[in-house]
């Protein structure tokens, strides 16, 4: 940077040697992606959260292979206190709590990721098309968004999950079906402002069709907003699924989830707090770390944000 400033101030260009452009004086150009990644990697809290989340996911995927007690095995003594054999005790029906938590974590992560991906896809497609095309498409999408927003996600999900059984993917699809609206609204606003820019006009002038402009020009330019909101949607989905399970209208056996493990065991909190706090701590760690990652991504994608906090 220094050499650039002095060169500009002194006003005379340093002589360029034959066939050898002076590139060493300029800072290495970085792509947008590299800049964002660099900022994100420096965000300590977000990086720690990535570590925690990866650890939880890996343990939930790998540990069940080696764990001595199977998730299905209900042959252990009922309400065994924590011990070497059962680090978090056993449930009323005599299942090992650790294996319950591991399987619950698998399903909770699976459901939350599915919800976030499906909701983001729906939201981005609707929002980007509405923001670019405006007119009747925009009105239609906006009214559709209003329509889905007037019924609380939990209530609609409760009725629909009852209709279509409670397997994990039904819960995920239903939660996504009533969770895409915020992303659509944000994407619509951004698509609207982006479509005023020259590069969109240039693309249109060179003959690009609607689909090409929206998905090759607009959406890639919204990647920051989309990534941040998709990440936060994962955290919200973890909590939404837990709430649904708590009112008894979420996933049904053989599928399970952390929310279900908590709601099956919270009545024992006074006498056997480990049965509640075990799955609870894992659930909070998951959603907390995802929220921190979302926050770090927001800072990393924000070009105005220079200083990286905490």
């Amino acid at each position: 940077m220094n050499s650039l400033v002095t060169r500009a101030q002194s006003g005379d260009e340093p002589p360029i040697k034959d066939g050898e452009p002076d590139v060493t004086a300029l800072p290495e150009p970085r792509s947008q992606g590299a800049l964002v990644l660099r900022k994100f990697l420096r965000h300590k809290l977000a990086m720690a959260s990535v570590g925690v989340l990866l650890l939880i996911a890996l343990v939930a995927l790998i540990l069940p292979i080696f764990w001595p007690h199977s998730y299905w095995d209900a042959s252990f003594p009922s309400y065994e206190p924590p011990s070497g054999d059962y680090p978090l005790g056993t449930t009323q029906v005599g299942k090992d709590m650790v294996s319950q938590i591991l399987r619950g974590t698998q399903f909770s992560l699976l459901i939350a990721l599915t919800v976030a991906i499906v909701a983001t896809l729906i939201g981005v497609v609707f929002g980007a098309l509405a923001g670019y095309l405006r007119g009747i498409v925009d009105s239609a999408v906006s009214r559709l968004t209003d329509l889905f927003l007037i019924v609380p996600q939990l209530a609609a999900a409760a009725i629909l999950v009852k209709v279509f059984s409670g397997s994990w993917w039904v819960v995920a699809i239903v939660l996504a079906l009533f969770g895409w609206m915020p992303i659509a609204r944000i994407t619509r606003a951004e698509a609207m402002s982006l479509s005023q820019r020259e590069f969109v006009e240039a693309a249109r002038a060179s003959g690009a069709g609607t689909m090409r402009i929206v998905f090759k020009h607009l959406v890639p330019n919204m990647v920051g907003t989309i990534t941040v909101n998709a990440t936060l949607a994962v955290a919200q989905a973890v909590l939404a699924e837990a709430a649904l399970s708590f009112i008894g209208l979420g996933v049904k056996p053989p599928d399970t989830s952390l929310g279900r493990v908590i709601s099956d065991n919270y009545a024992q909190m006074t006498g056997r707090p480990w049965l509640f706090f075990g799955p609870f701590v894992v659930l909070v760690l998951i959603s907390l770390s995802i929220n921190f990652i979302g926050d770090g991504l927001r800072d990393a994608f924000d070009p105005r944000q220079r200083r990286v906090k905490a």
Partner: peptide, 25 residues
């Protein structure tokens, strides 16, 4: 600021029924 941020993130990441259950207990 850090205490407020931490608390906000913590509550934001907790299922509300867990908060209620803990309070009740």
């Amino acid at each position: 600021d850090y205490v407020a941020t931490t608390l906000a993130f913590l509550f934001f990441s907790m299922p509300i029924f867990c908060v209620a259950i803990i309070l009740k207990t």
